[in-house]
Design a protein around this nucleic acid. Structure first.
Lengths: 244, 244
DNA sequence: TTTCTATAATGGTCTGACCATTAAGGAATG
DNA sequence: CATTCCTTAATGGTCAGACCATTATAGAAA
């Protein structure tokens, strides 16, 4: 980006590296190298502080950073400590949510990305979904029908998308979908949302039927129709909120 | 999620919320509500500590969390303080990198996701890329030719993908691409990498030509061929590393 | 054997201090 | 008047030491 040749003498910018940064980096290195792996327990804070030759507060800021990054989990009490976590996509979702809140992303971008993403997912799921996956999807759709509250039905919807993404056997798509679901959740409100929810359930069953028949184009088409209805609603409500 | 009726007395789980968590949450709320926005300056740590009625250390852990989340930036010195940042996707990339390092994601998943993603991107770019975008892509490809070091050429490649993603006019894709680039960077090594790099440059020019001609299928095909070569190399090297 | 209790380990928080960096104002200088 | 230098105060970064709340464990008591 800023690497265009310039007449200035190319001194490297002095970077005062803070203690906690160095500590984080070292721990991350051990993670990438495999020296540290999920389930491992780090020494106690007081011990680590001695080992790194920093104060306990500096060390704690490092551990706190790693915790909010989802890398470790701090457990209180005897036999407590910092445990290396297994991978959880929550933090990625949180990061994306923060990013959107900082105002750089429009609703249009979100919906477009979701549409394109679900396109891929449906195609892959069509090829790879096992009968277990399909049964689970149907079970969720059934459950949605029985749920009474708007919020519970929304939770079902999120789960439906997550299971569908899982059917691709590629976790990356799961992360992307979860992130978009979490972000779009904030927009999905409004007076006629309940009616919309009801009418979407049938579409979920249809999609499963297409997947089971391995009819890729029909499945993609169903998903598109489905999402476009949702997005129309979201957009309308977003405009209404902006007006009101 | 956990709201299914159960015979157990439904006591709410006691959640000992730590001070820094509450502080983070309140600040995030103000962010989502728009009370706080990019560029704003938070009060000084000592002031904030009084306001939240916590010690400075607890408050600092909160600020540190927000900083590593990319939400604020801490500036030292007089007139320093915590400034709300503009949106930067770096943290999302970092989160994804952490996720992969924690060992849940295979190389196959990464390459497959990239392939599918670039498919979308090429199609969208084909429809939306401006002449400025295309010229920039060509300029980067030209620059790649002139670069001498492997690392510099890799940087060019990453930039090429980033600019291509930007041509979709949808920042979400940019984030996804950046993340995958950062993660795959660790795998792209090996003895014959330099030869591969050279042979890839021509492909980049071809892609731009297809984009300019708005020949979607040709562009997609070129990108697929391109990536498949890269991925074959990466896979081979990954196996070699595992054997050695 | 079971149950209770004291103990020690550990993360969470607090207090108060000092250091390093930085911006701004004022003094000295030309 | 303009410039340069120095002082000062504000602020984040770090440190040291203490106490609290929670938790697992070992030992005492029943």
């Amino acid at each position: 980006m800023a690497s265009s040749p310039s007449p200035k003498p190319s001194f490297a910018p002095i970077k005062t590296r803070r203690a906690f940064e160095v500590i984080c980096e070292q721990i991350r290195e051990q993670l990438a190298a495999g020296t540290l792996k999920a389930g491992d327990k780090l020494p106690a804070e007081r011990e680590l502080a001695v080992e790194f030759q920093v104060s306990r507060s500096a060390l704690r800021e490092a551990l706190r950073s790693l915790e909010v990054a989802g890398i470790i989990r701090n457990v209180k009490g005897a036999k407590g400590g910092a445990f290396v976590q297994t991978a959880e996509p929550d933090r990625i979702v949180q990061a994306m949510q923060d990013y959107v809140h900082l105002g750089d992303i429009s609703l249009g971008e979100l919906t477009e990305a979701r549409l394109a993403l679900q396109d891929i997912i449906v195609r892959l799921a069509c090829a790879r979904a096992t009968e277990t996956d399909l049964a689970e999807l149907e079970a969720i759709a059934e459950r949605t029908k029985r749920e009474t509250s708007v919020e519970a039905r929304y939770t079902c919807a999120v789960e439906y998308y997550a299971v569908l993404a899982r059917a691709t056997k590629n976790r990356i798509f799961g992360i992307f979908v979860d992130s978009l679901s979490a972000i779009l959740h904030e927009f999905v409100r409004g007076p006629d949302y309940e009616t919309l929810q009801q009418s979407l359930i049938e579409s979920r069953f249809k999609l499963v039927r297409h997947l089971r028949a391995k009819d890729e184009e029909a499945a993609v088409g169903e998903m598109r129709k489905h999402l476009e209805r949702v997005h129309r609603h979201v957009r309308k409500n977003s405009k209404a909120a902006a007006k009101g």
